[in-house]
Simulated assay, not measured.
Amino acid sequence: MITIARFSFPYEAHIARAKLECAGLTPFVADEHTINMQWLYSNAMGGVRLQVPEAQAETALEILAQEEDEAALVEEQGCDTAPCPVCHSHNTEYYQFGRRWTFLSIMLLDLPVFPIHDGIKCRNCGQCSKTPPDTDN
């Protein structure tokens, strides 16, 4: 077995291991249990090691070097985010309106006075907008 990559945390090594297993290789994650028990030893031990048989090393390094294209993934798997009403971009994230005021009213009055509304925030233009209520009934 030859070490092809080192990671600070075991979950990072397992993501890479899963990627290699999907390609038909036989990777092994070394030192993960030691790092899980004493994570402060990670740097001293050289991190969690991802290992493969020597014959598969070159192929494994090529697979790990490939970066996933976000646009290709969206095209392949679809996009489930709501579009921005201003710029029509799907680069949005979940956002809640009124959380600060509700938290403040709970702290001061011990009663939630302000309602919290769900919405989206566009990462491209920064616009925040409320999502309409579901009308699937």
Rank of each mutant, 00 (worst) to 15 (best):
A13K: 10
H14G: 05
H14Q: 09
I15T: 14
A16Q: 01
R17C: 05
R17I: 01
A18D: 14
A18S: 12
A18R: 10
A18Y: 06
L20M: 05
L20C: 03
E21H: 04
C22F: 06
L25Y: 01
T26A: 07
T26N: 12
V29R: 02
V29A: 01
V29T: 03
A30D: 09
D31H: 03
D31Y: 02
D31P: 01
D31R: 04
E32G: 04
T34K: 10
T34N: 07
I35D: 01
I35R: 02
N36F: 11
N36G: 07
M37H: 07
M37Q: 06
Q38M: 15
Q38R: 13
W39E: 12
L40Q: 14
L40G: 13
L40M: 10
L40D: 12
L40S: 12
L40A: 14
S42L: 07
S42T: 13
N43F: 08
N43A: 09
A44H: 10
M45E: 11
G46R: 02
G47T: 04
G47V: 04
V48Y: 00
V52P: 00
V52H: 00
P53K: 00
E54T: 00
Q56F: 00
A57Q: 01
A57L: 01
T59V: 02
T59F: 00
T59K: 02
A60L: 00
A60S: 00
I63E: 07
I63M: 10
A65G: 10
A65R: 12
Q66M: 07
E67P: 05
E67C: 07
E68Q: 12
D69H: 11
D69M: 07
E70N: 04
E70I: 08
A71T: 13
A72W: 11
A72M: 13
A72S: 15
A72K: 15
A72R: 14
L73M: 11
V74E: 15
V74N: 14
E75T: 14
E76M: 15
E76H: 15
Q77R: 15
Q77W: 14
Q77S: 09
G78V: 07
G78S: 05
G78F: 05
C79M: 08
D80H: 13
T81G: 03
A82P: 03
P83A: 05
P83T: 02
C84R: 09
C84P: 10
C84T: 11
C84M: 11
C84Y: 13
P85A: 08
P85R: 11
V86K: 08
V86P: 03
C87M: 03
S89P: 07
S89W: 06
S89G: 03
S89T: 12
S89A: 09
H90Y: 07
H90S: 08
H90P: 04
N91E: 09
N91G: 03
E93T: 13
E93W: 07
Y94G: 03
Y95D: 05
Q96W: 11
Q96D: 11
Q96M: 14
F97K: 05
F97E: 06
R99A: 13
R99I: 11
R99M: 15
W101V: 13
T102H: 12
F103Y: 11
F103N: 14
L104A: 15
L104P: 09
S105G: 04
I106M: 09
M107F: 13
L108H: 04
L109E: 04
L109K: 10
L111V: 11
P112C: 06
V113F: 13
P115L: 04
P115A: 06
P115G: 08
I116Y: 08
I116K: 12
H117D: 04
D118T: 08
D118N: 11
G119I: 01
I120S: 14
I120N: 15
